[in-house]
Design a binder for these strands. Structure first.
Lengths: 343, 343
DNA sequence: TTGTACGCGTTATCAC
DNA sequence: GTGATAACGCGTACAA
């Protein structure tokens, strides 16, 4: 089997009796080239099956039209939808999208950041691994003026674009929703306090309790490692076996919340009468489980699109002034059957 | 803000009093370089923050160490897990992963194939859009000896690697499972018959009915456009309002199957007694819905890993002989509460 | 074991 | 409006 010779701008130049530079300019819609020439060149390119070589162009410009994504796990509803939004916006602008998963492991995150850098991406979109507290692996991008957008799980201090929801207010709203439904003893499934999202949701929870003069009880604030299904079941069982069990749960994600619903039902605890539950994310399972899970919306697609836009719109001039722009999106309670109607 | 000068192999060469070629070879573990030199070079590279330029290397080799993925939608459980498997295998081998979504639209698929080609990927993994019947947009990869792996939704004729499940046998097993649970009138939610997966599942369904001497009734075989939730609800309602409604449904995916469960329950039809339902994919919702949905396993992660391997292991020599290798994975019935136990 | 020289395909700069 | 030329960073054939 033999490999066909690829068509380059030199071939087009020969074919049309132009110089390679003219071809290049024509293909890039350079203003100094006449409409007629542009049309001719493009038609010929199409006809002979010319395809640009991004590697060559990228090398020349020292940047490829590519956005890199660095997230913990692709196959989670929030993340895959986020990526979908990024991909859509990027593609519209003629950019490609490189993905990598950290599996919530700091070391992987570091390696992937480097590997993505090696492809000379024109921007990086990151959602941090669960325990990342050091950000040196992002410095190389800063040094090269490559914009970084942290999305959802963002660092507190790093100077860069950020796209987040108001997690504090979301935690507050979720807890308030339980309180207004009549809950007096509300447990919280908390994620890693290294991550802003979980830390702030917890703060919102605590402040809502304070606001309504409910006691903050340490034994009701459960630190989770991964907020997984298994973890959720185990914790719920323990909670419900307490002599004074909670009458409400605010879980920092839907997975653990759904596991709580299932566990409670199995133990004969009625939802929402004896135990009201609210989750976070509005994953597909939340509207399928019975009773349907109340939860907080999480605009993944929009966050993805905004993140991509940040990079696409970024220009070198912005480096100093705009680099720390933060987009904060709103979230709302999605009230379903796992919580009591507001009384 | 100024951009730091990047370190190249020339800088390393100067620093170490070697020629650039020695540096290049050392970094690539070339056998003609002594262990000591390799170690020295790599240490220095690390120390001064050298990072290879994939664009330059790719241009030189006329291929970047990158796998391109072309799928309909990222944010579907099967697909995102498939991608996760690809990414994991690719990264282990030092490859990057480019993604693109066709949104089940043929035109997008064509455009994305071209764009991915422009990045000189070393292999392409494709799951076809719903209505793609022409494959000319893949020819350029063949012409350049770039391996293509079709996964799950594959063309019938195109000469290339394929990674699939045995959809016929899966359809057969699913239907048989319903029959053995006592169903006599089994409806089928069928996907686009342009796609092997849906066509074969339907064939398996029909052959199972024949095998058990059950009549094949056209009005029970419902052609779906997208197998969505909404479509599923509408169809189920109609089916159950028939004067002689079905007592079983084999849906070609879980989304439509779950919608059938929900719709049937709402209409007071008991599951599985009056209506047994089996889906396809084992999506997360299938084990959350009540009653839990029986379904067919679909080894997404494994399929992803195999697909990536196909590309990573591919060598030019294979072009003629191996290019049409097909991996067929097995699937099994996952029996849950939405179907009756085998009698 | 190491060095020299060239070219991969493109685009920016300078010239006309 | 167009052409000639150099340069991006790297890998490899050929030399030593």
């Amino acid at each position: 089997m033999e490999i066909k010779k690829e068509v380059t701008i030199y071939d087009l130049a020969k074919e049309l009796n132009y110089s390679p530079s003219t071809i290049s300019r024509a293909l890039n819609n350079h203003k100094s080239i006449s409409k007629k020439t542009i049309k001719l060149v493009k038609q010929t390119a199409e006809r002979v099956g010319y395809r640009p070589n991004n590697l060559a162009a990228g090398l020349r410009n020292n940047k490829s039209k590519t956005i890199g994504i660095l997230i913990p796990h692709i196959n989670r509803p929030f993340v895959s939808t986020l990526i979908s939004g990024i991909e859509e916006a990027a593609r519209k602008a003629g950019y490609n999208v490189l993905i990598s998963q950290s599996y919530d492991d700091y070391k992987n995150e570091v390696n992937n950041a480097h590997t993505l850098y090696d492809s000379r991406i024109s921007g990086l979109i990151v959602s941090l691994a669960m325990e990342t507290t050091d950000f040196a692996h992002f410095q190389q991008f800063v040094d090269q003026g490559i914009p970084i957008v942290f999305v959802d799980r963002v660092p507190k201090v790093f100077n860069s674009y950020k796209v987040v929801i108001d997690n504090y207010s979301a935690g507050y709203k979720a807890t308030k929703h339980l309180i207004e439904g009549g809950c007096k003893r509300i447990a919280h499934f908390a994620g890693s306090q290294h991550r802003n999202v979980y830390e702030e949701r917890k703060k919102g929870y605590i402040d809502a309790l304070k606001e309504y003069n409910l006691p903050i009880e340490k034994e009701l604030i459960i630190p989770f490692k991964t907020l997984s299904f298994e973890e959720g079941k185990k914790v719920t069982k323990k909670l419900l076996e307490m002599k004074n069990p909670p009458d409400g749960i605010f879980s920092a994600n839907d997975t653990a919340a759904v596991s709580a619903i299932i566990c409670a039902k199995k133990m004969g605890v009625s939802i929402p009468e004896e135990l009201a539950i609210i989750g976070f994310n509005d994953d597909p399972i939340s509207s399928i489980v019975e009773p349907a899970l109340s939860t907080m919306s999480h605009p993944a697609l929009k966050m993805g699109k905004i993140s991509a836009k940040r990079i696409l719109d970024h220009s070198l001039k912005d480096l100093d002034k705009l680099l720390s722009e933060v987009s904060v999106l709103n979230t709302e309670v999605i009230a379903r059957a796992s919580t009591k109607p507001i009384s």
